[in-house]
Structures are given as structure tokens and as C-alpha cells.
Amino acid sequence: MVGALVRTRVASNGTMVVQVRGHVSEAATVQLRRALLHALLRVRAGRLVVDLRHAGWVDPLGVGAVVAGCQVASDRSVSVVVHRPTHGVARRLEAAGLPEKALLRR
């Protein structure tokens, strides 16, 4: 199975975008966690978008990394949107404690 590619960028409006492509396994979870922490602790973005529209399967550690990143963002008053996860990933994110308002399913 192909691993995921995690990229970060800052949009023109200052939003930090963490984009994930492919299947998120244990190795990709490390990249994802680093990208989220970088966005929240180093860049200090005012808004964070976790773009999962091109992500396939996300393992439980990856789901936990996204939820933990969203909790850190909330603690720092950063708005977070998890953009277009698959239906299965969205269900696992919600089951792990991600607020439904953070999910953008379109």
C-alpha cells in the first residue's frame, strides 16, 4: 500500500493548510503530527485547514493525531476545519471526539 504525502502551505489569507494524499499509516502519522504541531506552535496560524479530500484510509493513530491537533488548536483559539474526509474517516474522527462543526464534508 502506498504511504501518504503530507504537505503544508500558508494560503494568501494566512490560513495554514495541511494537505494529506494517500493512505495514512504509522509512518505518515508521524509526518501528519509534525505538520499539525508546526502549524499550531511555530507558525501560529489563526486558522488551520486539514485537507483530507485526497486521503484514503487513515489508521487509528492518524485519526488520533488529527483530533489531538484540533484540541490543541481549540486551546489556542485557532479555528480548525477538517476538509472533505471520506465518510468512514469522518465517522472515526467523530467517534474519537472531533466536534462535528469542525468537519466540512463538501
Rank of each mutant, 00 (worst) to 15 (best):
M1C: 07
G3Y: 08
G3R: 07
A4W: 02
A4H: 09
A4Y: 02
R7E: 10
T8H: 09
T8L: 13
R9Q: 14
R9N: 10
R9S: 15
R9F: 11
V10Y: 03
V10D: 08
V10Q: 10
V10E: 14
A11Q: 09
A11G: 11
S12E: 15
G14M: 01
T15H: 05
M16V: 12
M16T: 13
V17M: 00
V18Q: 07
V18M: 06
Q19L: 05
Q19Y: 01
V20C: 02
G22C: 02
H23L: 01
H23D: 03
S25N: 12
E26N: 04
E26P: 01
A27L: 07
A27P: 07
A28T: 10
A28E: 15
T29D: 08
Q31A: 05
Q31V: 01
R33M: 07
R34E: 11
A35T: 12
L37A: 02
L40H: 09
L40F: 10
L41D: 13
L41F: 08
R42D: 15
R42G: 04
V43A: 04
V43M: 02
R47F: 07
R47H: 13
L48Y: 08
L48P: 09
L48T: 12
V49L: 04
V49W: 06
V50Q: 11
V50F: 12
D51L: 09
L52K: 06
R53V: 00
R53Y: 00
H54E: 14
H54F: 03
A55I: 01
A55E: 01
A55W: 02
G56W: 01
W57P: 00
W57M: 05
V58A: 02
D59S: 12
D59C: 15
D59P: 09
G62S: 09
G62P: 13
V63H: 13
V63S: 09
V63Y: 12
G64C: 00
G64N: 06
A65S: 15
V66L: 13
V66H: 11
V66Y: 07
V66E: 15
V67F: 14
G69S: 11
V72E: 12
D75K: 05
D75N: 08
D75T: 07
D75P: 00
S77C: 03
S77M: 03
S79I: 03
V80T: 15
V81A: 14
V82Y: 12
H83V: 00
H83Y: 12
H83C: 01
H83N: 04
R84Y: 01
R84Q: 05
T86G: 08
T86P: 01
H87C: 00
G88T: 08
A90F: 02
A90H: 04
A90K: 01
A90D: 10
R91I: 14
R92L: 11
R92M: 12
E94P: 06
E94S: 14
E94V: 15
A95Q: 15
A95M: 14
A96K: 03
L98R: 06
L98Q: 06
L98S: 02
P99H: 04
E100H: 14
E100Q: 13
A102W: 01
A102I: 00
L103Q: 09
L104N: 13
R105E: 11
R106Q: 13
R106T: 15
